[in-house]
Computed example of a mutant assay.
Amino acid sequence: MEMRTNRNRDRPALPVSAVVTGAVASLASVAALALLAKAEGKGPLQPINATSHWLHGEKAAGRDELDASHTLLGFATHYASAVFWALPFEFWRARHRPSTAGTLLRGACMTSAVAAAIDYGVTPKRFTPGWELVLSKRSMVVTYAALALGLAAGAKLAQAVVGCR
């Protein structure tokens, strides 16, 4: 009975933890996108602007200027996606309570791998992240690795801030 009480006490914190975790994961992956784009000779804003392709079409991938219509919309879409993926990760974390950083990172990697598989294997092309319009497959894999690191780091931050184990 005590275990059930603790889990129920943590449940209200789950959405808050997902917002914190998703924010860190989003920032980590956006930083990776910008650095990888630059390394590939593209503009650093192109991958995040490409995320707005669900509204603007593939021409969004060619934009490298900072603007609300592409950059803000692309970032907001990416942030919402990161929070979406942080929810099942935080649910897993609340249920399994990983005791080591390695276990936490393994869970984050699994979540990121599922996200990649769904983003590019199931999702209709119009609603993919759009990074494929700008980056190589290798850079996309690295970005999903950054997402995993961000999920793990975000979970540790959420644990400290929200107090959810």
Results as ranks from 00 to 15, higher is better:
residue 76 A to D: 09
residue 156 K to P: 00
residue 164 C to F: 14
residue 86 A to T: 12
residue 14 L to P: 11
residue 113 A to K: 01
residue 137 K to Q: 14
residue 165 R to C: 15
residue 61 A to G: 04
residue 15 P to Y: 10
residue 65 E to R: 15
residue 141 V to T: 07
residue 135 L to P: 08
residue 164 C to L: 15
residue 99 S to F: 08
residue 4 R to A: 15
residue 44 P to Y: 04
residue 91 F to Y: 10
residue 92 W to S: 11
residue 21 T to Y: 06
residue 161 V to L: 15
residue 51 T to D: 05
residue 156 K to G: 13
residue 74 G to S: 02
residue 46 Q to F: 07
residue 62 G to N: 05
residue 139 S to E: 01
residue 141 V to R: 06
residue 161 V to H: 08
residue 124 P to H: 08
residue 86 A to G: 15
residue 79 Y to L: 14
residue 143 T to S: 06
residue 7 R to M: 13
residue 31 A to H: 00
residue 40 E to C: 05
residue 156 K to R: 08
residue 45 L to C: 14
residue 7 R to L: 14
residue 48 I to A: 10
residue 93 R to V: 15
residue 136 S to H: 13
residue 33 L to R: 03
residue 45 L to E: 05
residue 157 L to H: 07
residue 78 H to W: 10
residue 69 S to D: 03
residue 112 S to E: 07
residue 3 M to F: 08
residue 49 N to P: 13
residue 110 M to K: 09
residue 39 A to Q: 09
residue 122 V to F: 13
residue 131 W to K: 03
residue 85 W to T: 04
residue 137 K to T: 15
residue 118 I to G: 03
residue 116 A to N: 08
residue 100 T to L: 05
residue 44 P to V: 04
residue 28 A to N: 06
residue 126 R to P: 02
residue 79 Y to Q: 11
residue 150 G to F: 04
residue 76 A to T: 14
residue 43 G to L: 09
residue 56 H to E: 01
residue 62 G to R: 11
residue 54 W to H: 09
residue 124 P to D: 05
residue 89 F to T: 03
residue 163 G to M: 10
residue 158 A to L: 01
residue 139 S to K: 04
residue 126 R to H: 04
residue 139 S to G: 00
residue 36 L to F: 04
residue 130 G to E: 02
residue 19 V to L: 05
residue 26 S to Q: 06
residue 3 M to H: 09
residue 82 A to Y: 01
residue 34 A to Q: 07
residue 111 T to R: 05
residue 136 S to L: 09
residue 70 H to R: 02
residue 129 P to H: 05
residue 4 R to D: 12
residue 140 M to D: 00
residue 34 A to W: 10
residue 59 K to W: 07
residue 140 M to G: 11
residue 109 C to S: 08
residue 65 E to L: 14
residue 160 A to P: 00
residue 99 S to A: 14
residue 15 P to Q: 11
residue 93 R to S: 15
residue 82 A to L: 03
residue 39 A to E: 01
residue 154 G to C: 04
residue 65 E to A: 15
residue 24 V to R: 04
residue 162 V to K: 00
residue 23 A to S: 15
residue 28 A to T: 09
residue 128 T to V: 07
residue 42 K to W: 02
residue 94 A to N: 10
residue 4 R to K: 12
residue 91 F to N: 03
residue 102 G to N: 00
residue 49 N to Y: 06
residue 103 T to N: 02
residue 47 P to I: 11
residue 5 T to P: 00
residue 83 V to R: 08
residue 92 W to D: 01
residue 8 N to Q: 07
residue 34 A to S: 13
residue 58 E to L: 12
residue 163 G to H: 10
residue 2 E to S: 12
residue 97 R to C: 10
